[in-house]
């Protein structure tokens, strides 16, 4: 068996209906699970970013990435191990307020986990934390004794440790190539 690792796959696409299912299909076809997924617009007009966390042997992930990049409306795909990116997830915890108040030093708990309260009423309190998966899980563990009513986590978002989003360079190059073709 090849060594399985966690990879963050960053996909830049044109804004087009149906692309997301083509991308997730590529994972299914290579029997890779999607551990987390987030999608949204980028700073570039018309360019979307999809970030997927998966786990598998490097060769299989690479093949999947290449198959995705082959799709006509996919601009560029990168995949990274965790040490090559800065990444975060957002977690929200809904906790029974009366339970939470019993914990004694709520402030110390929140500051220890670098979390904050975003909503509080008589029945429940919503706590927000950003961090890595294991960190948000630890806070969940810490809150468990106080009755966690709901716990949700977002998909991962990440930036590479390179100076610039590599897709910028690619798109600039393509712009020049388009000019050349138009001049022909």
């Amino acid at each position: 068996m090849m060594e399985e690792k966690e990879y963050t796959v960053t996909i830049y696409t044109e804004n087009q209906i149906g692309l997301l299912s083509q991308i997730t299909n590529a994972f299914t076809r290579h029997s890779l699970s999607i551990w987390s997924l987030s999608a949204g617009a980028t700073s570039l007009e018309g360019v979307h970013n999809i970030t997927i966390v998966t786990r598998g042997p490097e060769k299989k992930v690479k093949e999947t990435v290449q198959q995705i990049e082959k799709r006509v409306d996919v601009i560029k795909v990168f995949f990274y191990t965790a040490d090559k990116i800065v990444y975060r997830e957002l977690a929200l915890y809904k906790v029974a307020t009366d339970g939470l108040l019993e914990c004694g030093d709520l402030e110390a708990l929140l500051s220890r986990f670098n979390a904050k309260i975003v909503e509080m009423n008589k029945t429940f309190t919503v706590i927000q934390k950003t961090g890595h998966t294991d960190e948000t899980a630890l806070l969940h563990d810490a809150l468990k004794p106080y009755k966690v009513l709901q716990f949700v986590r977002s998909g991962r978002i990440s930036v590479s440790k390179a100076m610039q989003e590599p897709v910028f360079k690619f798109l600039r190059k393509r712009e020049q190539e388009q000019k050349q073709i138009n001049n022909q």
Partner: peptide, 13 residues
């Protein structure tokens, strides 16, 4: 209004 222009470039392809 019909206007045809062949495709010669797609930036993502």
């Amino acid at each position: 209004d019909f206007h045809f222009e062949p495709c010669r470039f797609i930036r993502s392809y």
